[in-house]
């Protein structure tokens, strides 16, 4: 079952709007004072959550495509990944603004001193080259093969993101959500590993034959 090109662009446009809703909700809540007693904590956590959601959704595209055979879904992947970067940027911005008031030197000191922040910061830095090379033009310039290699960084980034969250929650011994995210990312990565091994065995069999 493949939607027509027109249907595909409708799906993509709806997804674009839907992915923007968490941000719009946040903006609306700021102006209507609906963020509770500690609005900045709320914004930090909310943007962090949405970063993880979008990383997971982006990572889910390939397995879903393979399991369902809906190859057109790959067209949605770039937008989803960029949304992950968008929410990660907001998350980082709240940290830089509200925790450090744009004092970059102080911010970096904080990053180096605290492992859980360092892990999150590293993940954010690693996301940047992926976002920068997301245009068709850049794919051409980098070369498809190298581009693919580079974008495998997302596996590391998602794992670091989960570790960042896990560490943040560790002090409170509140692991239910980090474990959930961790399991989802693990399943999505293990599926890829499984397919890679399968492919290799298949190739070996062919070469022996």
């Amino acid at each position: 079952m493949t939607p027509t090109l027109k249907q595909q662009s409708i799906i993509k446009a709806s997804l674009f709007v839907a992915a923007l809703l968490p941000f719009l909700r946040l903006v609306l809540a700021v102006f209507t004072d609906h963020l509770g007693a500690n609005p900045l904590e709320f914004i930090t956590r909310n943007t962090g959550d949405w970063t993880l959601y979008f990383l997971c959704i982006t990572l889910a595209v390939t397995p879903l495509r393979r399991l369902t055979g809906w190859s057109w879904m790959v067209k949605l992947r770039r937008m989803l990944g960029l949304y992950g970067f968008f929410y990660a940027s907001l998350h980082f911005l709240t940290f830089l603004w509200f925790d450090h008031f744009f004092d970059v030197a102080e911010m970096l000191k904080d990053v180096v001193k605290r492992p859980f922040i360092l892990v999150g910061f590293t993940a954010f830095i690693l996301l940047m080259p992926l976002a920068l090379t997301s245009t068709n033009k850049m794919i051409k310039r980098v070369g498809a093969k190298r581009w693919q290699q580079l974008h495998k960084l997302i596996y590391l980034i998602a794992s670091l993101g989960v570790l960042h969250y896990f560490w943040m929650k560790a002090g409170k011994h509140d692991f239910s959500q980090p474990v959930l995210f961790g399991s989802i990312v693990a399943i999505l990565l293990l599926l890829r590993l499984f397919w890679a091994i399968q492919k290799r065995q298949h190739e070996q069999r062919l070469s022996v034959g």
Partner: peptide, 19 residues
């Protein structure tokens, strides 16, 4: 004395310190 995961040098007063 910092908490292992964050600094204790400053604090956010609820309802006052913010944006």
């Amino acid at each position: 004395v910092d908490h292992p995961r964050w600094s204790q040098a400053s604090e956010r007063r609820i309802g006052e310190d913010g944006f």
